[in-house]
């Protein structure tokens, strides 16, 4: 199971947890706090090819739209269907059931390049 501790982070606040060659992707607890009440998530399409750093998802709060970038390259193999009816799940459980989508990784080096939790925390001043 993915947790804050066993995930790695992009500087744009996404986390990725690698299980085999499948990366589960979400946003950090810090990011959900900054975004505020999440009201709609425009998830990527299953089957869509994404490359690391590519904008592939939009999280809408009452106040603003936030672009979400793929932390690793590969193919989107699953999206979190629960978010279609309950997008605020990301606010409640950013590191648990509020994951966004899963990518079948095509470049293992992408994941290695991400930060661990303590390095990420330094970037957000925690």
């Amino acid at each position: 199971m993915h947790t804050a501790e066993n995930s790695k982070y992009a500087k744009t606040h996404e986390w990725a947890h690698m299980d085999g060659d499948i990366a589960t992707v979400g946003i950090s607890d810090h990011a959900q706090q900054e975004i505020g009440d999440i009201v709609f998530i425009d998830l990527p399409q299953v089957g869509q090819q994404v490359s690391a750093g590519q904008n592939c998802c939009v999280i809408e709060s009452v106040k603003s739209a936030s672009e979400i970038y793929a932390p690793v390259s590969g193919e989107v193999v699953e999206v979190n269907e629960a978010l279609k009816t309950d997008p605020a799940l990301v606010n409640r459980e950013a590191h648990g059931n509020g994951w966004l989508f899963k990518i079948k990784s095509s470049a293992p080096a992408d994941y290695e390049a991400l930060m661990d939790l303590s390095a990420y925390k330094q970037t957000i001043g925690q």
Binding site: G36, D37, V39, S61, V62, K63
Partner: peptide
């Protein structure tokens, strides 16, 4: 302040 606790709660 843009919000306190939550925009939805304040609304």
């Amino acid at each position: 302040p843009v919000q306190f606790e939550s925009i939805i709660a304040e609304h």
